[in-house]
Amino acid sequence: MALKVSIDLSRKFIVSADSDHVFALLSDVEASAAHFPKVHAITKIGDNRFKWEMEKVNLGTHSAQTAYACEYIANSTDKTVEWFPIKGEGNSEVSGKWTIKELSAGTELSFVTKAVLTLPLPGLLKLAISPMVKMEFAGMVDTYITNIKTVLV
């Protein structure tokens, strides 16, 4: 039996870099992913398609590893980068979007993501494990955002 955990996150922040520089980084999946913590491997599996394998995470007395694949669409006109789950790849599904907005001084970034993580854990652990999974995922996203901010000064 598997445990499913659904997570929705959104973050908004401003960096001093111009929007073209921001878009160049975020539309390059491998360059952007290099700033995401706890990535065991990211593998290109086709045009704009990547499989993510995360490091194992300890959840109390249990551990779990997530893997998923996404197709990425970068729109230079709208300055957006979206990702959509590729069904049947890995044990989880992740989707999301970066929206990049030029300001008079700097760039505003909006990040949204939705994840459905399917972990090989007994469903009876949902009440105990689900909050830890959500906290771990949010912490990784926050570290990623911090790393992106550091690069886009």
Rank of each mutant, 00 (worst) to 15 (best):
A41W: 00
A41R: 15
T43P: 00
T43C: 01
K44D: 06
I45C: 10
I45G: 11
G46A: 12
D47E: 15
D47N: 12
R49M: 14
E55Q: 13
E55Y: 00
K56F: 00
K56H: 07
V57M: 08
V57E: 08
V57A: 12
L59F: 12
L59R: 08
L59W: 10
S63Y: 04
A64R: 08
A67L: 01
Y68S: 02
A69G: 15
A69C: 11
A69E: 12
C70K: 05
C70L: 00
E71W: 01
Y72K: 03
Y72W: 15
I73E: 14
I73G: 06
I73P: 00
A74C: 06
A74W: 10
N75H: 13
T77Y: 05
T77R: 11
T77W: 00
K79E: 03
T80W: 04
V81N: 08
E82M: 13
E82I: 04
W83Q: 10
F84R: 15
I86K: 06
I86M: 13
K87D: 15
K87S: 15
E89K: 12
E89V: 15
E89C: 10
E89D: 05
E89M: 12
G90T: 09
G90E: 10
G90L: 09
N91C: 08
N91E: 09
S92N: 12
S92Y: 10
S92W: 11
S92P: 11
E93C: 03
E93T: 14
V94P: 02
S95I: 01
G96L: 10
W98V: 02
W98D: 06
W98Q: 06
I100K: 11
I100R: 12
L103G: 07
L103Q: 15
A105F: 03
A105K: 13
A105H: 12
G106M: 07
G106E: 10
E108S: 12
E108P: 04
L109T: 09
F111K: 05
F111N: 03
F111D: 04
T113A: 07
L117W: 02
L117T: 03
L117E: 04
L117D: 01
T118W: 00
L119C: 07
L119F: 08
L119Q: 02
L119N: 03
P122V: 08
G123F: 05
G123V: 09
K126E: 12
A128V: 13
A128S: 12
I129R: 09
P131V: 06
P131W: 05
V133G: 07
V133K: 07
K134Y: 03
M135V: 00
E136F: 01
F137T: 13
A138E: 15
A138V: 04
A138S: 13
G139W: 04
G139Y: 03
M140K: 13
V141W: 02
V141P: 01
D142S: 11
Y144V: 06
I145F: 06
